[in-house]
Design a protein around this nucleic acid. Structure first.
Lengths: 242, 242
DNA sequence: CAGTGGTCTAGACCACATC
DNA sequence: ATGTGGTCTAGACCACTGG
C-alpha cells in the first residue's frame, strides 16, 4: 500500500542516476567522480542542484568530498575513515587500537533456513562460511562467524583472505566489487558455549555480547550475515545516539 | 591544542545564534520558531543562508520542519517521533510496542567518584537516584538506574515521576527545562547479580545486556547517567550502521 | 487565499589543493 | 594560475497547510 512517489525533486532523480552509475562500477572505489560543474553541464541542471545530489550521496557515505580536490568514491581501505564505522567494539581504556585478525576456519556450505531468509537466498544456495577472531594485544575478544552468498564471491579462498592486509570489507570491495554500504545490528547477551569460550579464552557460561549483523550493498540488497561474540571485561560496544 | 576556528561560515554562525536562543528557552518545546523569511530579514541574510542554518538544526534534531506549517522546537512528547531514538530495546518479534514503566525506587544521594566525573560534578554534589523497570506485556525486561544532577531537577518527586503519562525525557523537558539532545552508550554483557535477577525475573548469573548511557543537553553538557540491565531472551538492542 | 517550507536557477565570490 | 568544492545572494516558482 505504499503511496506513489507523486513527486521526486530533480536533485533526488540525479542522485539516483549517480547511484546507478556508482553501483555499476563506472568509477572504481577511491577514484574521483566528475566535478560538479561537469555533472551540471552533463545533466543540464544548475550547479546548486547537482551539489544537493552529490551532498546526498556524501550523507549516505557513498562518496567523500574533499575541498579543492574533488569528490571520491568512498572506500573501506581508508584507515580511520570508514573503518570504525563498522567496528564498534572499543577498548575500555579508550586506546584506539586496531585489532589483529586470526582466521579460524574457511569453508563452503549451503544456506540454511533463517540465514537464507535474511540473505534472501533459497535454502541450499551455496555460501561461504568464515570464522575468525579479533584480538587486541594478542588477547582474543571477538569471535566472528560470517556467511556470504558464494555467488558474489567467486574465487574467494582462505589464502586470499589471510594474505589481504586490510579489513575484510576492503578485500570484498577491491577484489569482488561488493561494497558494504550499511548494516543493521541486533545485540543480545548470551552465555558462552564451550567452543566459543575456548576460542575466546574464557570459561563456558561466561556472559558474551552477541552482535548479529546484516550488511547491505546498493539497493538495500543483503550481502553478509555475521554473528559476533564478544567478551566485555576489557572491551565494549560503543554507540552514539545522535 | 585545538586549532582556531579560522573561518566560520555565516550559516553556522546563525545556527549558533539560534541554538543559544533555543537553549535559553526563547521558544518552548513544540512551539514554532519564526519563519525562514522572518529570520532572514532579522539577521540580514538571504533566504538560502537561513535555510542552511535551520536545516543544520533539524539535522541535529533540535527542531522539526513541517512543510506548509513551520519549523518547531523538537520535543520528546511526540510519540514515535523521537521516542524510539533513545529507546533501542525492541521485541524480537518486531512488534513496536511501547513498554510499561514501574518505578522501583526514588531517592536523593551524593555523587560518587566515577559517576561524578562523567556528570562533571564534584564528589558529594547532590543527585537524584531513580530505579525503574520497563515491562512488555507485564514481563519485566529492563532495569534502569538513573543518576541526575539534583541542581537541575529541583522539585522532582516520586509522585511527579509516577503521575507523568509520557516518557521521562518528556517530563524532564516540560517540567524542568532540561532537554536531552544526544547520548553516548556503552554496551557490555554481564552476569545478573541477585538483586537485579529478582527484579527481572531471571536466575542469578543469567547473562544481561548492560547499557550505560551518558546523555547531554545543549553545549554537550552531561545531564544524565543511566545504567540499564536488559534481559535478551525476548528482546534485543537494535542499531543501524548508516 | 496567504503563509509556510522545499526546489531550482544564475551568477558571484571564497577557501583549498595542485601545478 | 587553474580547478575543485563551499558559501552566499536574489529571485522565481512549486508543494503543502490552513483559514
Amino acid at each position: 500500500m505504499a503511496d506513489a512517489p507523486a513527486f521526486m525533486p530533480l536533485y533526488l532523480q540525479i542522485k539516483d542516476l549517480l547511484t546507478q552509475r556508482l553501483a555499476a562500477g563506472e568509477w572504481p572505489p577511491g577514484e574521483a567522480i566528475p566535478s560538479e560543474l561537469t555533472l551540471a553541464a552533463e545533466f543540464g541542471v544548475s550547479h546548486g542542484t547537482v551539489r544537493k545530489a552529490v551532498q546526498a550521496l556524501a550523507d549516505d557515505h557513498l562518496v567523500v568530498r574533499r575541498q579543492g580536490k574533488g569528490t571520491f568514491v568512498a572506500t573501506h581501505t581508508e584507515e580511520a575513515q570508514s573503518t570504525f564505522r563498522f567496528l564498534r567494539i572499543r577498548r575500555d581504556d579508550g586506546m584506539e587500537e586496531y585489532p589483529g585478525r586470526r582466521l579460524i576456519d574457511f569453508r563452503r556450505g549451503r544456506a540454511s533456513g533463517e540465514v537464507a531468509r535474511l540473505l534472501e537466498l533459497r535454502a541450499g544456495d551455496p555460501v561461504v562460511l568464515i570464522r575468525r577472531v579479533l584480538e587486541w594485544q594478542g588477547e582474543p575478544a571477538v569471535l566472528d562467524d560470517l556467511t556470504l552468498p558464494a555467488a558474489l564471491f567467486r574465487g574467494l579462498t582462505r589464502a586470499k583472505l589471510e594474505a589481504y592486509p586490510g579489513s575484510m570489507y576492503g578485500l570484498f570491495e577491491s577484489r569482488f566489487g561488493v561494497r558494504m554500504l550499511n548494516a543493521r545490528e541486533r545485540l543480545k547477551a548470551v552465555a558462552a558455549d564451550a567452543g566459543s569460550a575456548a576460542l575466546l579464552g574464557v570459561a563456558a557460561g561466561w556472559p558474551l555480547l552477541s552482535v548479529e549483523r546484516l550488511a547491505f550493498t546498493y539497493g538495500g540488497r543483503p550481502v553478509e550475515y555475521r554473528k559476533g561474540l564478544c567478551t566485555t571485561h576489557a572491551h565494549h560496544y560503543a554507540n552514539d545516539l545522535g
